[in-house]
Nucleic acid binder design. Sequence first.
DNA 1: CGGTATTTTGATTTAGCTCAACAGACGTGG
DNA 2: CCACGTCTGTTGAGCTAAATCAAAATACCG
Lengths: 249, 249
Amino acid sequence: MPQKRSTPLNKRSIEKDQCTIDVRLAKLRMVPFFSCLEMNDLERVNEKFDVTPFTAGDTIYRQGESAALLRVVVSGSIKLIRRTSDGKEILLDMLKPGEHFGSLSQLGDNRYNETATAQSDSCVMAIGSREFRSLLMQFPEVAVSVLSIVTDKLNHAREKIRHLTTLSVEKRIVHILLTLCDKFGEESRHGMLLQVPLSRKDLADMAGTSTETASRIMSKLQQDEIIESGRQWVAIKDREKLSDLLPDH
Amino acid sequence: MPQKRSTPLNKRSIEKDQCTIDVRLAKLRMVPFFSCLEMNDLERVNEKFDVTPFTAGDTIYRQGESAALLRVVVSGSIKLIRRTSDGKEILLDMLKPGEHFGSLSQLGDNRYNETATAQSDSCVMAIGSREFRSLLMQFPEVAVSVLSIVTDKLNHAREKIRHLTTLSVEKRIVHILLTLCDKFGEESRHGMLLQVPLSRKDLADMAGTSTETASRIMSKLQQDEIIESGRQWVAIKDREKLSDLLPDH
DNA sequence: CGGTATTTTGATTTAGCTCAACAGACGTGG
DNA sequence: CCACGTCTGTTGAGCTAAATCAAAATACCG
């Protein structure tokens, strides 16, 4: 049995200076839906954003609060969580730099319908949602691009619904690991290391199961030499084998 | 025990002539994201759409087919279904006039990721997705409006994910009935009658459960005088009591 | 009036939840 | 740098909601 080592997560990848004005423009350019803009338009857009740093564990906004800002992840990672009245919580999404969250719809009652938490030290840009909307009117190609992204997220959400109703917990977790691998995986001596603090509870909340069953499944995967994992970290050693555990493809 | 009567569904509400050119403009105007357009713009938009009638049970497109069209329901109702390789299926959404479906994202591999079926006799407008996108560029307010709608659907999908992971099957079904009541409910002598052919299997596929449990739950609700139902139809007799079965609200 | 699709009800089985107790990692303060 | 407390993960043993299997009853359609 492989021994648990101390966390191999690369904490240096999150540096404070990633929030300075110098790098803001470069980051903005990396945001998928702004990439189509000309440099001078980008500069104008840049001025409208405020930047705030958050440390791991910080709550950025809470479910139910009145919503006024649209935000974009500059660095770090953000968790979107929805809580039930009885305390259970589910992890809807984990965002990486370039992704947006917060208020967008002008429908509904303008309340955040999830809680956003900094998963690791992070830097976040914010813009008033009203202002963002006028920006979309000004640059329709940005609007179409955002629409594409949201449509894509809707599709993912629906795929998750399918998983929840048709797949076993094990398969759901395998699928989640594969997705996270593609999104956060980085080559390391342990295999593809997920560059994000990831607890058993996080996994459970993503798969819609209990921490205990999540732990059991991870233990099994570890015994089968498919993954390697410790406190708050996971690495995929054998993506092939992992992928083989799923029905289609 | 109330006797089962023959279907009280109002089939006359779906008339063939709703597809004629005469009513197209009026219908287009009722589409939420076109409502902001001026009359002459609306007429220009109208010309770009083709209209096709479908009879109940027709498949409009299949999951996996290459996707090129964006469609808008003019009359009738459409089911969006996602199938698993092992034959199980889940009902993602039921659409009513004014809602859109089909291809929208320019990301991904341009395949439909669900199957669309006419739930009742329906009439559907279609436009090339490329053409629709250029239309969005031309009328940014439409783009922003569509974005709002999709964001809203994303939110609903996430709420469904929460339900699937935290609520019992009974509560999920109660919630679905309430939602359908708001969307398709019409006053009738049975109470709020859901103007849509709705089988136990449909309900089961929406709640992510088996037809048998769906049936059991519906039987119980019927015994408690909360709903009334027969083959392919459901009416809500006591919305209050139904709503009381849910935790929050 | 017979045939088919839908719904109902019962009996059995099981995946995964819950409760419970322990063990390993982290970090914090002396 | 070490000892202690806390948080995270592991493992075991029942328990339960809901799936599955099976079969009868009812509605609709020609």
